[in-house]
């Protein structure tokens, strides 16, 4: 708790308390702390003088923001059109089955969290999966296990 306060105060130092900074602040909080926690929303509310529901209203509107803790590695499966016609949704199912979680969840051992995305802009190499900052093109169900292996 103390820790969170310090980190958040640190983040606030780079911003003025103009409500227009809400989205960049939420982005920074997510980047530093992994997700938008309830205490974080309380802190932002004090800082920007917005109500907690206003903040939650904005944060929940955008698909980027997470309200649950993340895993050590983040898997993002592209569900865009080019990936869809080359089997993106089947790939997503394979990840869900293999990791025994649903989209938006995190594995019990906190190794992976899983999410879909509308397009990663690598459509020419569809289907595409991103793990942390690494992008994998021309993915397939049978490459799944070996692709995950290096991520401990």
């Amino acid at each position: 708790m103390e820790d969170l306060n310090i980190k958040i105060k640190e983040i606030f130092r780079n911003f003025s308390n103009d409500p227009g900074n809400l989205i960049p602040i939420l982005q920074k909080v997510q980047k530093e702390l992994g997700y938008i926690s309830l205490p974080a929303i309380e802190e932002i509310s004090c800082f920007l003088k917005l109500t907690e529901s206003e903040i939650y209203g904005v944060a929940s509107f955008y698909s980027q923001f997470r309200f649950n803790p993340r895993g050590r590695h983040s898997i993002t499966v592209c569900l865009g059109t080019a990936c869809h016609v080359r089997g993106g949704s089947i790939l997503m199912e394979a990840f869900e089955r293999d990791l025994e979680i649903k989209t938006g969840e995190c594995t019990l051992d906190k190794r992976f969290d899983l999410d879909g995305v509308a397009c990663l802009g690598c459509c020419a190499l569809a289907p595409v999966v991103k793990i942390d900052n690494d992008i994998y093109g021309n993915m397939s169900v049978i490459k799944l296990k070996e692709t995950l292996e290096p991520y401990e």
């Binding site: 103009d18 989205i23 982005q27 904005v58 509107f61 698909s63 980027q64």
Partner: peptide
Amino acid sequence: IKEGAGAFVCGEETALIASIEGKRG
């Protein structure tokens, strides 16, 4: 530079403006 936060509708110009202003897009 303003980073979008993952909402297709924010490509629409009036939604985009709302988003830059820190509101729901």
